[in-house]
Amino acid sequence: MAQPPAPGTRPVALVAGASRGLGLLIATDLAGRGHDVAICSRDEQSLQQGRDQILRCVPEARVHTMACDVADEQQVRDLVDSTEQALGPVEVAIHVAGIIQVGPWQASHHDHFEQAIDIMLWGPINLALAVVPRMTERGHGRFGVVTSIGGKVSPPRLLPYSTAKFGAVGFVEGLSAELAGTGVTATTIVPGLMRTGSHVQAKFFGDAAKQYAWFAPAASLPLLSMDAHKAASKMVDGVLTGRPVALISPLSHIGTRVHGLAPNLTAHAMGLASRLLPKGSSSEVVDGRTARERLSSPLVDRLTTLGDRATRRHNE
């Protein structure tokens, strides 16, 4: 088992799913707070770009990269081994990797759910199994998982996403209870929509262009989405202070409380929203960039201006 870091060295944080977007912001924030960081994703090129971006912001940090599919248990164990060999014992581990699939239930298939669950439920489980026992043996550690308000309230057109996120919420909240008294904490991070620029990476099906037309502005407009830098900082605060649950945005605070007090009302409201949103039966899945080209709407392009800026800044 790896030994604690020598006095005066930087603690080590591992962020799974950190080559771009929110994960990259979280890793950069941790580096700025004095951590050496390990980042992973499935794409080697984006990992190098993410590493370079972190070092531009925090030149003194050590940054370890490794390609890893969080759905693969052995790859995640290898990631933790590689990180501890390169940087030292992992003191902080945060799972951010995710996929957003937007489309109606009628056009969804088994593989949509399988992909979402593999990344956003098995991913956190695999990371916890690989890193938390090492933390408990040392008597200290911080573990966090970015879930979603979609793991507390299930909105229409995001059913595979919410299915995985509900599972992740249950896992991390239960893990937090299991770890009581060990010196290790597990934080369920619950954000709402954030301007990370991820609308271009989201997957759309049904009528892809029409689904993009409502989702992209919702993920970009200030009244509906939160600044990603502020969100990342709040997430790191929640994990480092060991909070069991970190509600990040006004939407996550309001949505969680309303659903808890009036679940039937919330379900009826989601049903009304579903009636208003576009449908479609096509099983073809396209990314946000392709959906935007098909839509070709100057109005939607204007409404996503802030999201597009985030795309460029956050390596999306």
Rank of each mutant, 00 (worst) to 15 (best):
A2E: 15
Q3V: 15
Q3K: 14
P7Q: 05
G8A: 08
P11Q: 09
P11L: 01
P11F: 01
L14N: 00
R20C: 07
R20W: 08
G21E: 01
L22D: 08
G23I: 05
G23L: 07
L30I: 01
G34R: 05
V37K: 03
V37S: 04
S41F: 06
S41T: 09
S46W: 02
Q49E: 14
Q53M: 14
I54Y: 00
I54W: 06
C57K: 15
C57R: 12
P59L: 11
V63Y: 00
M66Y: 09
A67T: 13
A71L: 06
D72N: 09
Q75Y: 12
V76R: 07
R77Q: 12
Q85P: 10
A93Y: 01
I94L: 09
G98D: 03
I100L: 15
I100Q: 04
V102K: 01
G103V: 02
H109C: 14
H110D: 15
H112K: 05
F113S: 04
E114F: 09
Q115S: 13
M120Q: 08
W122V: 04
P124Q: 05
N126H: 08
N126W: 07
A128S: 13
L129E: 11
V132W: 08
M135Y: 13
T136K: 08
R138H: 07
H140L: 07
H140F: 11
G141R: 01
G141F: 04
G144F: 09
T147S: 12
T147E: 09
S148L: 06
K152F: 11
K152T: 11
V153R: 02
V153Q: 10
P160A: 04
Y161M: 07
A168P: 05
V169R: 08
G170E: 11
V172Y: 01
L179Y: 01
V184L: 06
A186Y: 06
I189K: 00
V190N: 02
L193V: 10
M194C: 15
M194K: 04
T196Y: 02
T196A: 15
V200D: 13
Q201W: 13
K203V: 11
F204H: 07
F205Y: 15
F205G: 04
F205S: 06
A208F: 09
A209Y: 01
A209M: 12
K210P: 00
W214E: 03
F215T: 02
A216K: 03
A216E: 02
A219E: 03
A219L: 10
S220Y: 12
L223H: 14
L224G: 02
M226A: 03
H229A: 14
H229I: 15
K230Y: 11
M235Q: 10
V236G: 01
G238Y: 03
G238N: 11
G242V: 07
P244A: 07
P244Q: 10
I248Y: 01
S249I: 05
L251V: 14
I254D: 02
R257D: 12
L261F: 14
L261A: 15
P263A: 10
N264R: 13
N264W: 13
T266G: 00
A267Y: 04
H268S: 13
R275Y: 10
P278M: 05
K279P: 02
G280Y: 08
S282W: 09
S282Y: 07
S283Y: 12
E284D: 08
V286S: 08
R289L: 15
R292Q: 12
R294K: 14
L295S: 04
S296V: 04
S297P: 11
S297F: 06
T304A: 04
T305V: 07
A310W: 00
H314Y: 12
E316H: 14
E316D: 14
